[in-house]
Design a protein around this nucleic acid. Structure first.
Lengths: 189, 189
DNA sequence: TTCACTTTTTGTCATTTGGCAAATGTTGTC
DNA sequence: GACAACATTTGCCAAATGACAAAAAGTGAA
């Protein structure tokens, strides 16, 4: 759980008692590759911290194509904020790209933490804002780039990720076909 | 200021005294078309509520092209969160697409409000999260769409906006060239 | 190793989009 | 109205990407 605590401490102060409480509320679970953490149509009732492995958030567009919105690797929180915040059915899936170890908080556990730990809400809000800003800043420039630049940008921003995810998922994340991505890779070598 | 107050009330409760305080802290300003509300390189020290007009957030990519990230129309807040939250120099411009009336809060004013009004932080956090989620949800599917679908999606989501912004800005927002957008429009008619 | 299965690469061709320049349309001012 | 300044459309061609199918490479189990 050390990764989780270190992560939280970046966003606010916590004493040992509070840290122990947080640890006691987190539940360790494991997902096998391709297992779902949450599914479209259901209401998200949990938040996950990725301790090991990679998750991805994906959905089906109106052509029935499966689109990967983003990847979540170690030391990041995964939650379908839309669904979790407003308790409405989710429109996307959160799935393990490879075997994962997650630390999971239920809505109840989070409520307890927010009541007991003064700084909790401020920490969570800071984490939420930061991760959303990162998403916007990451996706937004991709629109103005061609496929090759997107791939290169991805390699630069997430060098550790490129080798760990299947080409097909990366292609759908980049908004291009798998064939095109394969050709781009050949082209770059 | 009624628009502002009604907007805030969607996210939390405020009594008359608090409403009056908020009104007293807001400063009305006007921008002429193409004036900047904030500029790249400077630290954002203000938050604006768009009472009338349209702003856009834009930046220059590494090819020197000017890219419009998004538009902000009436009854929305505009702020460079990255710069404002962390007090670091901004990497983007906020510019009036047409003449605007804004209600502006300085960092000091916001601090006063957060100290005085119990619900303030919670309201601001809710607004922040909601607007960021909206941005992610809006941009993200565009990657998987071709130019024509992006334009059609834009028309569906922002019907009132399409006629109010120059084609060149809309094209850069959609990540396509102005010529292509012009052809797409002809094609659709 | 061999087999079955999955993933990635490649070939071929059609379609989309970009780049550039010229033409056309629009707007505001005198 | 005439003009200048700006915005939009169009033509032409090249480049990028998609669609589809087949080949090649990689993976794991018996």
């Amino acid at each position: 759980m050390e990764n989780l605590i270190n992560y939280l401490l970046q966003f606010g102060q916590l004493n040992q008692q509070q840290i122990d409480l947080i640890k006691s509320k987190a539940k360790e679970i494991e997902l096998k590759k391709e297992d779902y953490f949450s599914e479209a149509g259901k209401i998200a009732r949990q938040v996950a911290f990725v301790d090991d492995g990679i998750l991805r958030v994906c959905y089906y567009n109106n052509k029935g194509e499966e689109i990967t919105r983003y990847f979540i690797d170690e030391n990041n929180f995964a939650v379908d904020l839309n669904s979790f915040s407003y308790q409405i059915p989710s429109s996307e899936y959160v799935q393990a790209v490879k075997d994962c170890k997650l630390l999971v908080f239920s809505a109840d556990a989070l409520k307890d933490l927010s009541v007991t730990i003064v700084a909790w809400n401020s920490i969570i809000n800071a984490i939420t804002a930061k991760s959303l800003i990162e998403k916007v800043n990451r996706i937004s420039p991709m629109l103005a780039e061609d496929a090759k630049s997107r791939y290169i940008s991805f390699l630069e921003k997430f060098p550790q990720l490129a080798n760990r995810i299947p080409l097909s998922l990366l292609a759908s994340y980049l908004g291009i076909t798998q064939s095109s991505l394969s050709r781009i890779r050949k082209n770059i070598r």
